[in-house]
Design a protein around this nucleic acid. Structure first.
Length: 830
DNA sequence: TCGCCATTCACA
DNA sequence: GTGAATGGCGAA
């Protein structure tokens, strides 16, 4: 990809789902400033949008006249050549627009766009149609309402009506550029003007000044100077001098003091200095793994390692040692962790070794903090970044290492807005582009990575022993036992069987801690009328409503719909609605009844809404302020708690019953991970699993901590049944408000794909399955149908994307509010 | 014939 | 993803 280009026109990628770039003329004034990777403001249709200049040649055929770029928004390119190359590859691989990928690589909130807003005009002189009156009411209620918002309220955009209302003077339509939501934050600082910078001049000044307040201000600035602060913030100086702003203004007017604007960096890292590093000693397995990685780093060779190490085997120490090696070469590193594991404790472990070379990115940061961190990464201020999925696109140059910790975690796969990328796979490709090393770490690797390792595409490094904690013997793996719920009569609604209750009581007596996993939030997932069998469903989604006891509500976990709990069954009027099944709230209630003295922390989506709630809960538990940590899968990740000696899984079968070919793999991974929380110091740990399927192979292998045996069995099965990682999948989802329409569109899409494939030399490489209704056929008021595409042989997989793209391009445009979304390598059959 | 809506296309 | 042109349909 050549970075040189004819300066009078450029290709611009726009953040829209359009599979093409657009060509713009560059006015002479901008020709020196415009470079690939720069953000530019361009006219597009009747709108203005922020796009990014990409290093592409203009197409052979162009419209007669090109529109000009209106502004260049960056002095330095926002994206390096390397990131342009990476995002380009992602757009090709994930079959989405380059502009959409670029948007994911830039901090949010920077976009400048034009918006059209509506304001009330003259009052209507004659009676209006119902619809026109509705529009005027909306605009009167929300002056400055956007057209998009109006469409949401009305269901469609009545452009004709709007224009007539504007012509009649009943409405005003204004188009304006919206400022970016984030900007560089500046703070006013004060300093002496050049003539007063010497001590002598300042002394003279103090004699000359008449006002006591003016003298106090000058004296305060002098004092601050002696403390080493030559340009204090304005607020600091005023507070110190006890002077009003007017005094300062007068001194500035007299040319004695100057005001300067300084950039302020909003940083989520606490001002506290990084902690002291604890010494690292390596056991032989760690050393061997590190030696292999170090060799590739020293050779500056691209290589991907799968670091398969049991919980507590010391994977983080290996990451740190590898990163040190990379830093000694002057190269940089990215550490990816699942969002949930991104606690201050994780960050502190890296800060202990790398000090303020470490930057953090995560979703709970404000847009301002993210923007500032991104800018500092871009300038090279931080050579190390630790963050979730999106950090794989961080603007670091000279990359030497990318670590993907807990690489099997599904949160690495982006779903909601395109690009639907898998951060692990992007990490491997980015490492390849940089001749860097990629380390994928996990106690229970994804079958994709494990197969890649067995095939030699990745280098497999095994660490099967727990590392000794300093000065102690290594902790043993916890003992896992099953509680067979088929033989245990549970009292109505009691989710905890006697053996688990006894085990909990035992730990409480000894002052040890317990973690309980119940992978469902709320009180009960279903409410059912015992008289007629009716249960409440979401009006927008094809799912039952979950009963939440606090607050007393029925809630949809897919769209957020909430309603009051009905007192009687709306179908038969009986007052016999009974909660079925178990959620975290029910377990919490049971614990409070059984152990009124125990201090229980519940951790699920409902108790971790706040910015730091997640961290607060975990650190309270770590400090011993609670005895039992109860929650959804988020209790499986995160910290080490040395006093936890019991892990209980209230319903280990949740997840096994999902209609997903990865159900067994995911259940095993989750249970292994939560089991690893037990007994990490020198106290032995115990894991109790409540199940109705004690003979299930997942439990069989779990009892023996035997990942490899399960992986081999699952791999053999996947190969036989034709599932990934032996085949490649893509899902095309068609969604919209009307079921028959959605189904029809999905069917014609499948036919078009099939048809195009037949015309392609080489024959039928890709199987087309469906359309079928999605697992939850209706979500948020939209019906969903899936077409599954499958490349049965890996050698045929590269045919998938070009065919998808061609189908997409040749498919007629969809009606408003109907959508097609493509998901390459889907994480689950949702 | 007008107003309303869904459909379709262009956007550089 | 959005704005605007197009054409069919029912009400006047």
């Amino acid at each position: 990809m050549a970075m040189t280009m004819s300066p009078d026109m450029v290709q611009v990628a726009l953040p829209l789902p359009l599979m093409q770039c657009f060509t713009y003329r560059v006015p002479p004034a901008w020709q020196d400033a415009v470079q690939p990777g720069c953000r530019v403001l361009v006219p597009f249709g009747r709108r203005h949008l922020t796009g990014v200049v990409v290093p592409e040649a203009p197409p052979a055929s162009l419209p007669d006249s090109l529109k000009p770029i209106l502004d260049v928004l960056d002095d330095e390119p926002a994206l390096t050549e390397e990131l342009l190359q990476l995002t380009r590859w992602m757009a090709d691989y994930y079959v989405c627009s380059w502009g959409e990928v670029i948007r994911a690589a830039l901090p949010p909130g920077l976009e400048i766009e034009s918006r059209r807003r509506l304001y009330p005009g003259q009052p209507p002189a004659e009676p209006l149609s119902e619809r026109a009156a509705a529009v005027l009411r909306l605009v009167a209620a929300h002056p400055g309402i956007t057209i998009r918002r109006l469409r949401q309220e009305l269901g469609s955009t009545p452009y004709g009506l709007l224009h007539r209302l504007v012509r009649a003077g009943l409405l005003r339509l204004e188009e304006a550029l919206e400022a970016p939501r984030v900007q560089i934050k500046k703070e006013r600082h004060v300093r002496f003007a050049p003539a007063y910078r010497t001590p002598a001049a300042q002394e003279q000044l103090l004699h000359r000044l008449r006002g006591a307040r003016q003298r106090a201000l000058v004296a305060a600035l002098q004092a601050l100077q002696l403390e080493g602060v030559t340009e204090p913030p304005r607020a600091t100086l005023l507070a110190r001098a006890g002077a009003p702003p007017a005094t300062l203004r007068r001194l500035v007017e007299q040319g004695i003091l100057e005001l300067v604007d300084k950039e302020v960096i909003r940083s989520p890292l606490e001002a506290e200095p990084p902690p002291a590093p604890s010494p690292i000693t390596f056991h032989p397995e760690q050393q061997a793994a590190l030696d292999r990685i170090a060799e590739a780093i020293d050779a500056r060779r691209f290589e991907t390692f799968l670091l398969h190490g049991v919980t507590g085997s010391g994977k983080t120490e290996v990451y740190i040692a590898a990163l040190k090696r990379v830093r000694r070469q002057g190269r940089t590193g990215i550490i990816l962790v699942p969002e949930i594991a991104l606690t201050p404790q994780t960050v502190q472990r890296f800060r202990a070794h790398f000090g303020d070379e470490v930057a953090v990115l995560h979703s709970r940061m404000s847009e301002g903090e993210r923007y500032d961190t991104w800018r500092q990464l871009r300038t090279g201020r931080y050579p190390i970044v630790i963050g979730p999925r999106s950090a794989v696109l961080a603007p670091l140059e000279n990359l030497g290492l990318i670590v993907v910790d807990e690489e099997h975690e599904r949160s690495y796969k982006q779903f909601d807005p395109a690009p639907r990328y898998h951060a692990r796979d992007v990490a491997v490709y980015r490492a390849y582009l940089n001749n860097a090393v990629c380390v994928l770490g996990s106690a229970t690797p994804s079958l994709e990575s494990y197969l890649n390792a067995r095939r030699g595409k990745y280098t497999l490094l095994e660490m099967q022993r727990r590392a000794p904690t300093v000065g102690r013997t290594p902790a043993r793996l916890p003992q896992v036992r099953l509680i067979d719920l088929r033989h245990t009569r549970l009292a109505n609604g009691n989710p905890l069987a006697p053996p688990l209750v006894r085990a909990i009581a035992h730990r409480l007596e000894r002052g040890e801690q317990v973690i309980l996993l119940q992978n469902r939030r709320g009180f009960a997932p279903v409410l059912e009328c015992t008289a007629c069998g009716w249960s409440p469903h979401c009006p927008h989604c094809s799912v039952t409503l979950t009963y939440h006891k606090v607050p007393h509500q029925l809630r949809c976990h897919y769209c957020g719909y909430a309603t009051r709990h009905p007192n009687t069954c709306p179908q038969c009027s009986a007052a016999t609605l009974e909660p079925l099944g178990t959620g975290t709230q029910r377990v919490e209630e049971a614990l409070q009844t059984l152990f009124p003295e125990a201090r229980v922390l519940r951790m699920d989506l409902d108790t971790t809404r706040g910015r730091r709630a997640h961290h607060h809960l975990l650190s309270r538990f770590a400090r011993g302020e609670a005895d039992i940590l109860l929650g959804t899968q988020m209790v499986a990740k995160g910290l080490d708690f040395p006093r936890v000696t019991l892990v209980g899984v209230v319903n280990a079968d949740t997840g096994l019953l999902l209609p997903d070919f990865r159900a067994d793999e995911h259940t095993f991974q989750l249970l292994m991970q939560v089991a690893g929380r037990a007994g990490r110091a020198d106290r032995p740990g115990e894991v109790l699993l409540q199940t109705r399927n004690p003979d299930h192979r997942v439990f069989r292998y779990l009892l023996r901590h035997d990942y490899v045996a399960l992986a081999l069995e699952l791999l053999a099965e996947r190969q036989q049944l034709g599932y990934p990682p032996y085949t490649r999948l893509a899902v095309v989802e068609c969604s919209g408000p009307e079921e028959t329409r959605v189904q029809e569109l999905a069917r014609s899409w499948a036919e078009r794909f099939h048809h195009l494939q037949q015309q392609t030399p080489g024959g039928h490489l890709i199987e087309v399955l469906g359309p079928t209704p999605a697992l939850h056929e209706r979500l948020k008021g939209r019906y969903r149908y899936h077409v599954l595409l499958k490349a049965p042989r890996r050698s045929d997989a590269p045919a998938l994307q070009p065919l998808l793209r061609r189908t997409l391009e040749s498919f007629p445009s969809l009606p408003r509010s109907y959508r097609l979304t493509l998901d390459i390598d889907p994480a689950g059959l949702s």
